[in-house]
């Protein structure tokens, strides 16, 4: 049943995603491939909308993906099941915070999972890049614009709103004047 699968998948994201909101993306990406609940293009829109709306990005994306899958009820299930593991873990950990933090196994697992989460997100980025740029005819303007944004980001950490605003304007201008 789709609602149960939705619950199970998002519960797993809550258990296994490490490194914050964007770290849920590799899992959302996997779901889009495995279930067809939403498309690859939806995923890109989901990231954009989630980055400019109130609330933690991870929750926004879960709500959005749930909505795409099964409407408002789907959102409710996705959101509840992604936060459930946090609730359980932290209530358990809170009782013995210091012991937990200084545990050598916990330290080693965190040491491994941080770069691992980074690698997963990088792979999703490359996949989205392939999907946006290489599946259709290669557009030099778009590549130049992306390079420009990336150089900007290397110089200074910018608010997500900035990227999305500038690129929305770029999208409107290029379709108006170049086609």
């Amino acid at each position: 049943m789709i609602l149960w699968e939705l619950f199970w998948n998002f519960f797993n994201i809550g258990v296994f995603s490490f490194g914050g909101g964007y770290a849920t993306l590799p899992f959302l990406y996997h779901i889009s491939e495995a279930y067809n609940w939403y498309s690859f293009d939806d995923l890109s829109n989901m990231i954009a909308i989630s980055s400019i709306t109130p609330g933690p990005i991870g929750i926004n994306m879960a709500t959005f993906a749930g909505f795409k899958t099964a409407g408002v009820l789907g959102s409710l299930i996705a959101t509840t099941s992604i936060v459930l593991p946090s609730l359980v873990f932290i209530v358990l950990i809170s009782k013995a915070l210091r012991k937990f933090r200084e545990n050598i196994y916990v330290k080693s697992i965190i040491y491994v999972l941080k770069p691992l989460g980074c690698g997963l997100l990088a792979a999703v980025g490359v996949n989205l890049f392939i999907n946006d740029f290489l599946s259709e005819s290669i557009n030099l303007y778009n590549i130049a614009f992306l390079t420009f944004l990336i150089i900007l980001s290397l110089r200074k950490k910018l608010n997500p709103l900035f990227y999305l605003l500038v690129s929305a304007i770029y999208g409107i201008l290029t379709t108006t004047f170049l086609t």
Binding site: G19, G20, Y22, A23, L25, D41, S44, N45, I47, A48, S51, K114, P115, G117, C118, L121, A122, V124, G125, L128, F129, D132, N142, F145, L146, L149, I150, L152, S153, L154, K157, L158, P160, Y163, L164, L165, V166, S167, A168, I169, Y170, G171, I172, T174, T175, T176
Partner: peptide, 29 residues
Amino acid sequence: FVQSLFAGVGIGVLALLFQAVGEMWKKSI
């Protein structure tokens, strides 16, 4: 109009991800 807007935003999302990976990289590698 909305489609052309989101076509552009798709590029912004890539830059956003690049920055997010960079942030994680600094903390983890």
